Computed example of a mutant assay.
Amino acid sequence: MALDLTSGARTGSTGRPAPGAHTLRHRRRRERLRTIGFLSPWLVGFTVFFGYPLVATVYFSFMHYNQIKQPEFVGLRNWSYVFTQMPLFGPALWNTVWLVVVMVALRVVFGIGVGLLVTKLKSGVGFFRTAFYVPYLAPPVAATVAFVFLLNPATGPVNEVLGAIGLDGPNWFNDPDWSKPSLVMLSLWGIGDLMVIFMAALLDVPKEQYEAAELDGAGPLARFRYVTWPNITPIVMFAVVTGVVQTMQYYTQALVAGKLASGVTIGPGTVIQPGYPDHSTITVPQLVYQLGFQNFNTGAACVLSLVLFAIAMAVTMLLMRRRSGLLSAED
């Protein structure tokens, strides 16, 4: 038996690999097959529900396709139409970005605040947990209908209370300047999901660190900055990234609120034109639906979908950089 110094494998007198090398390769092959077998459910799901739709979206973005006739290659005509000729693309993109920045930031801050409040309570913890979480369980359409009723500028209870104390309530969903803030208020009302996540993170912070900070004379703000925040940073990152992805797909609440505020009755056969008032609530997902399923312009709808995907990926990659301020070198 001789040792081949170039390959590191034992060889026989004829220069061929020894039986042990063949057994090692066979074992590694079995391990790869076993790993692929365990990964196969994810691989199938990824291919069917993400890989193929993404490739198809890119393909149809260069096609003229009305879902009836065969696709016809048109080059960059769909891209040119979306970026230069579609009048609602600019307002929809601005509204979507505004909601991503404002809504996600306020939901994270509000979720941390509610989580801190509930964890510090001495009594009635179960009641307040339930009270803050129940609104999240409401279906989006039902919650939006209730919120539009509460914020009705003429007969809503909120403006009546404001009028009783001498304040003039805004027009809320009927005012272009207040429509998006009203949607943000609706999202803050259903903050129960983030509250539960942040409560779990806050309760997991080691109490010894709080005790050491108190012995060093740290006040509440210092304890939050130097103890609480470093421990919940990964959860904050999770909340921000998932919030960005969800808000980039914001559709139902804005559409229902705009239609109810406009006074149009939604029924069978009703063609919904989103964006009331003055295109202040129109979002890119609404344009995707309008182009793809109402106007049957599949190519332009695919272009908008790819724009959303690119923006979401860029923001996510920016947030997940270690130097972004949310991830440290140890995470």
Rank of each mutant, 00 (worst) to 15 (best):
L3A: 13
L5F: 14
T11L: 14
G12P: 09
S13N: 09
T14R: 12
T14F: 03
T14K: 06
G15N: 14
R16A: 15
P17M: 15
A18D: 15
L24V: 15
R30N: 08
R34G: 12
T35I: 13
G37K: 09
F38K: 09
L39C: 13
S40I: 09
T47M: 14
V55I: 15
Y59S: 03
F60E: 06
F62H: 09
M63F: 01
Q67M: 15
I68G: 05
Q70I: 07
Q70S: 14
E72A: 13
R77W: 12
R77P: 01
R77M: 13
N78V: 07
S80W: 11
Y81V: 10
M86Y: 13
V104Y: 06
L106N: 08
L106K: 01
L106A: 08
R107V: 07
V108C: 09
F110M: 07
F110S: 04
K120S: 06
K120Q: 13
F127A: 14
F128D: 02
F128V: 14
T130V: 12
Y133T: 12
P135T: 12
P140D: 05
F149G: 04
N159F: 01
A164S: 15
I165T: 08
I165A: 11
P170S: 10
N171K: 10
F173K: 01
N174I: 02
D177S: 04
D177L: 06
K180V: 05
S182Y: 04
V184A: 00
M185A: 04
L186P: 00
W189R: 00
G190S: 12
G190R: 11
G192K: 13
D193R: 07
L194I: 08
L202Y: 09
V205S: 07
Q209C: 01
E211Y: 07
A213Q: 05
D216W: 12
G217T: 12
R225V: 04
R225Q: 00
V227F: 15
T228L: 07
W229A: 04
N231C: 13
V236R: 01
F238E: 02
A239Y: 03
M248V: 09
Y250C: 00
Y251A: 00
T252C: 07
V256A: 10
A257T: 07
L260I: 05
A261H: 12
S262G: 11
S262R: 11
S262F: 08
V271M: 09
Q273G: 07
Y276K: 02
Y276A: 02
D278L: 13
H279Q: 06
T283R: 02
T283M: 10
P285N: 06
Q286E: 08
Q290P: 00
F293G: 01
A301I: 02
S305A: 14
L306H: 00
L308S: 03
A310H: 06
A312V: 13
L318R: 10
L327K: 11
L327W: 09
S328F: 05
